[in-house]
Computed example of a mutant assay.
Amino acid sequence: MGDSAKRPKYEFVDINVSGKGAVRTAFANQVDYCEHNGAPITARIVAAIWAAIDAGLDNALARRIVEWQGPPLADALPLRVAGGIHALHLSGAEPALSPIYRGIGADDASIVGEAMRVYEAPLMPWLDGPPQTNEAGRSSNFVAAMLWLARKGLPPRFACLEIGSSAGINLMLDRYHYDLGGVEIGPDRTAMRFAPEWKGPPPPAEAIEIVSTRGCDVAPVDLTDPAQALRLRAYIWPEHTVRFERMEAAIRAAGERKPDLVKANAADFVEAELAKPQVQGTTRLLMHSIVWQYVPEEQQSRITEAMEAAGAKATTDRPLAWVSVEADRTVHRHMLKVRFWPGGDETTQLAWSHAHGADIDWIAG
């Protein structure tokens, strides 16, 4: 077992609660979340946004934040605003933000509040959709889960489907190399290499093959479009410099061969893909990371029903698996979980994982 039993606990926050009080709570929770995931600068930005509003900032942007109509935590409202602020810094539009992003002491609330006042109009569209935090490092979780599934006896040839693919960076996971607790997998000549800090026993050392990848997003991002690529960069937490390097590598990889990515909502996509014939001797695998909270409840239900119905028909030579990396905000960590059919209908947690794949605490044995 890993050290998950020793992890500090935090006050439970219902991510589906809405209202002004929920907005304040969402910002406070996001600050805690960032601090516990190695993102002190992002924590400063999020704290400064709310501090500026608390100090009296009153314009259309501030009012829209305070009067948010949906559940602010599930909608990642604080990170929507923080992404817009980061874009102002990355583009050089607001030099006054530089001390914060350089980690220098400053009057954060005053600086961020002024940016929210001056750039009210360009910041407003950042509230229109959730962050698209496409991070290649999360693919280490998916590959580790495939190794575990192969050890369980599922065919080690995987046809992968992903919802909430954003720019499709994780759809290129077969092009990356992984060192997972000493278990090496993937091509040697590769766009990226991942060696997350590994805790616990290594995953099973199995030979696997990713035969196909296909994904969807309600607003897919074209990595070859500079403007769209800038938007993705803005959602990267500035402390995590390696993520910018990975983004550049992903842009190059997409330029060589774009990922198979379609515009569709998650439920429509899953239902349509599950209706297609499955090749014998392959494991059809649905995967997603840090996206479930953005999927409307009606679509969550449809996906679950579709997966369970397809699972009931799955056979040993045409099995179905469901792998997810999603947040547990009671510990500010992420759980790598899996279900598979036939034989593994109950959800199994394989690991605790960092939001961006920096470390994996393997608890599956």
Score class of each variant (00 low, 15 high):
64 R>H: 10
35 E>T: 12
74 A>Q: 09
50 W>K: 05
83 G>K: 13
46 V>L: 11
50 W>E: 08
66 V>H: 01
80 R>P: 12
43 A>E: 11
45 I>S: 05
38 G>I: 07
63 R>C: 05
51 A>S: 14
75 D>S: 12
83 G>V: 13
39 A>H: 02
42 T>E: 01
41 I>C: 04
45 I>A: 06
76 A>I: 08
39 A>K: 08
76 A>M: 11
66 V>F: 02
43 A>F: 09
55 A>I: 01
65 I>M: 05
73 L>E: 13
44 R>N: 10
60 A>D: 15
68 W>G: 04
34 C>L: 11
83 G>Y: 12
41 I>N: 03
50 W>C: 00
71 P>H: 07
65 I>S: 05
70 G>I: 00
47 A>C: 06
40 P>I: 01
73 L>N: 05
54 D>F: 01
69 Q>N: 07
35 E>N: 15
40 P>N: 08
60 A>Q: 13
70 G>L: 12
64 R>Q: 14
53 I>T: 05
53 I>C: 06
57 L>E: 00
51 A>G: 09
45 I>G: 05
51 A>W: 00
35 E>G: 09
48 A>R: 09
75 D>E: 14
75 D>R: 08
75 D>M: 08
59 N>Y: 06
69 Q>P: 00
72 P>D: 01
48 A>N: 05
72 P>Q: 08
81 V>C: 12
34 C>D: 09
41 I>G: 06
47 A>P: 00
75 D>Y: 04
46 V>G: 05
64 R>C: 01
47 A>K: 15
74 A>L: 06
38 G>A: 10
55 A>Q: 13
46 V>Q: 08
64 R>G: 06
77 L>N: 10
55 A>G: 14
54 D>P: 00
55 A>E: 11
44 R>Y: 07
45 I>N: 06
71 P>I: 01
72 P>N: 07
40 P>K: 03
38 G>L: 10
58 D>F: 03
39 A>V: 03
83 G>H: 14
80 R>S: 08
58 D>N: 13
61 L>M: 07
59 N>I: 11
73 L>A: 08
41 I>F: 06
74 A>C: 02
46 V>A: 10
82 A>G: 06
54 D>A: 13
57 L>D: 00
41 I>D: 04
76 A>S: 15
47 A>S: 15
47 A>N: 13
53 I>D: 00
52 A>C: 09
73 L>Q: 14
69 Q>E: 14
36 H>T: 14
67 E>Y: 04
55 A>F: 02
41 I>T: 15
59 N>P: 09
63 R>S: 10
61 L>N: 00
49 I>M: 09
44 R>H: 06
36 H>Y: 11
42 T>L: 12
63 R>N: 10
83 G>L: 13
67 E>M: 06
56 G>D: 01
81 V>M: 15
68 W>E: 03
48 A>E: 02
75 D>I: 00
72 P>H: 06
78 P>E: 10
71 P>M: 04
39 A>E: 15
58 D>Y: 02
63 R>Y: 02
59 N>G: 09
73 L>V: 05
48 A>K: 04
61 L>A: 02
37 N>W: 10
48 A>M: 07
67 E>T: 07
45 I>H: 08
47 A>W: 03
45 I>D: 02
34 C>K: 03
62 A>T: 04
53 I>M: 11
40 P>R: 08
71 P>R: 04
57 L>F: 01
64 R>W: 05
63 R>L: 06
72 P>T: 07
59 N>E: 03
42 T>M: 15
